[in-house]
Design a protein around this nucleic acid. Structure first.
Lengths: 236, 236
DNA sequence: CCGCAAAGGTGTACGACGTACACCTTTGGT
DNA sequence: ACCAAAGGTGTACGTCGTACACCTTTGCGG
């Protein structure tokens, strides 16, 4: 007669539910708050229960990456390889922006998962379908680096200096002055975007623009090399 | 009469010795083996002693980055900005290659140290001295991203698949065949470098070449934009 | 319908880790 | 000679990943 209330037995965990819960938790609380313990708590289960579904935390992170990679749109039917690849990479970027922790996790993986290999294979296939040689494609992939995923390693996630939430505008101005004498060139280019001068340091640039600027520079470069029949010189 | 042997008192620690020991330990044992405890042990000191010299582990890592940044050569006196920047970045690359953990640590820093700001300021100054506008320089720095440090985020540190030290060549061949059917494009471009076909998977590419390929593509792109007076279009 | 193996979930425990805090020891300046 | 500051110590706490032995539920072949 103990507690009749519990109509349906808790549906058992499985790898997929674990991964999705992990992604959701990382989205909500940040990747640094994701531990085997916190995830288990989230799923109303004891920490060790997770190990019946993932081998260890590394595999959990691998699985989470594959969930995100699964969100990338399949190739669209663009006529030319350049815009097809461009669109696909920007789709990857959108997926990654939805999960701000994802780029850091991808960087930290030490060996690729099947989902990742599928994606890379498909991007390479798009270059090849466009007629680029295997040789040039090889170098192109290296040149893109993490940009195939839609992110650049930003030099610094936030703006330099202490937290901008300090409020005190006088101290901020003083700090800027100090910066300007010690690092004049940095300050100059940070302020180079003329129209959003309101916040002295914060959000000075349009990340999306910066990303596309670099991406197009590279894609245009590949195209130019392709057209002139470039091949890596014999270096041996 | 207890132990007269200990002629000179141990010279006291200081921040610099701590940082150098940390760099040396990371070089020798890998960054993942660097803990406050292991570093203290290395210095024949109790873990908490380190906290008299660095505020916490994050600051220790910051300091280690500055040590490495200090190893980058000062600007050479090249005539044109492009080759001057090229040389400087390749010098940074050499410094980073001497300390394989450094790129990962740089990536993980959340706010810049003075040494880092000095380096960035100086690179920006080189663009400006070459006549590039603050606007174009701004975008160029973004486009370079972590490449200013001389590294690219490799898609994967090692080759895909399980450890290649498995030795058994038959199993390796089978694995390669499996890869070739599932990821044909990847296998094709991995094998695209014709002359080092001996190791099936390992070390298929010349990282230095890949780095310079991408770097030159970008620098050439900046130069082209500069020559044609490029300016970021009004996007508002 | 029984019994039993496998699959799934639990509890306890261990050895790392970073670091707070109170304490002792050495040292250099007056 | 003294004393404050600087440098080093010892103990302790909370968190982490996860090994291992155990219990419970479930589905299936006899």
């Amino acid at each position: 007669m103990t507690q009749q209330t519990e109509p349906a037995r808790r549906t058992p965990l499985n790898r997929d539910r674990v991964l999705r819960a992990a992604v959701a938790l990382a989205d909500r609380a940040g990747i640094e708050a994701l531990s085997m313990r916190s995830l288990a708590h989230e799923l109303d289960v004891v920490p060790m229960a997770l190990y019946k579904h993932v081998a260890n935390k590394e595999q959990l992170l691998d699985g989470m990456v594959d969930v995100i990679v699964g969100e990338i749109d399949p190739p669209a039917g663009d006529a030319d390889w350049k815009s097809a690849i461009r669109r696909r990479i920007l789709s990857a970027r959108r997926a990654l922006l939805r999960h701000p922790w994802a780029s850091r996790v991808i960087e930290s993986r030490t060996s690729p998962t099947p989902g990742v290999l599928d994606y890379l294979n498909s991007i390479i296939g798009m270059f090849r379908a466009g007629g680029l040689s295997a040789d040039l494609t090889h170098h192109a992939m290296h040149a893109l680096g993490s940009r195939v995923w839609g992110f650049t390693q930003e030099l610094f996630p936030a703006s330099p200096g202490p937290a901008p939430a300090d409020a005190d505008p006088q101290a901020l101005a003083a700090l800027l002055g100090e910066m300007a004498t010690r690092y004049p060139h940095i300050v100059e280019i940070v302020l180079a975007r003329p129209h959003d001068g309101e916040s002295v340091v914060g959000q000075g640039c349009d990340d999306q623009f910066e990303f596309e600027f670099a991406l197009d520079l590279l894609l245009d470069g590949f195209e130019r090399l392709h057209r002139q029949g470039w091949t890596s010189v014999e270096r041996f």
